[in-house]
Lab assay of single mutants.
Amino acid sequence: GATAVSEWTEYKTADGKTYYYNNRTEESTWEKPQELK
């Protein structure tokens, strides 16, 4: 299949934890999204 550009962006909180934000759905998660595995 075609490689889609991930909708997920990786961010870090002030205390250094990583989370992921989906630009399309406006969803955020602590877990690494399936698309990034």
Score class of each variant (00 low, 15 high):
1 G>L: 14
1 G>S: 12
2 A>K: 04
2 A>L: 14
2 A>I: 13
2 A>H: 14
3 T>H: 14
4 A>W: 13
4 A>Q: 14
5 V>W: 12
5 V>D: 12
5 V>T: 13
5 V>Q: 14
5 V>K: 09
6 S>H: 11
6 S>R: 08
6 S>V: 09
7 E>A: 06
7 E>F: 09
7 E>M: 06
8 W>Y: 02
8 W>I: 02
9 T>G: 07
9 T>K: 11
9 T>A: 10
9 T>Y: 09
10 E>I: 09
11 Y>D: 01
11 Y>M: 15
11 Y>I: 14
12 K>Y: 10
13 T>G: 11
13 T>K: 03
13 T>A: 07
13 T>S: 08
14 A>W: 09
14 A>N: 09
14 A>L: 10
14 A>D: 10
15 D>I: 02
15 D>A: 06
15 D>T: 06
16 G>L: 02
16 G>D: 04
16 G>Y: 00
17 K>L: 11
17 K>I: 10
18 T>H: 07
19 Y>W: 15
19 Y>N: 03
19 Y>A: 05
19 Y>E: 04
20 Y>A: 00
20 Y>M: 00
20 Y>F: 08
20 Y>P: 02
20 Y>Q: 01
20 Y>D: 02
20 Y>H: 02
21 Y>I: 07
21 Y>V: 10
22 N>G: 00
22 N>H: 03
22 N>Q: 01
23 N>T: 13
23 N>D: 10
23 N>M: 10
23 N>L: 09
24 R>M: 13
24 R>D: 09
24 R>H: 11
24 R>A: 11
25 T>G: 02
25 T>P: 01
25 T>S: 05
27 E>H: 04
27 E>W: 02
28 S>W: 15
28 S>L: 15
29 T>D: 04
30 W>M: 09
30 W>N: 08
30 W>E: 07
30 W>P: 07
31 E>Q: 08
31 E>I: 10
31 E>R: 04
31 E>W: 06
31 E>D: 10
32 K>I: 10
32 K>V: 08
32 K>M: 13
32 K>Q: 07
33 P>R: 01
33 P>N: 03
34 Q>P: 14
34 Q>S: 14
34 Q>T: 13
34 Q>I: 12
35 E>M: 05
36 L>H: 09
36 L>V: 05
37 K>R: 11
37 K>D: 15
37 K>W: 15
37 K>C: 06
37 K>M: 15
37 K>P: 10
37 K>E: 15
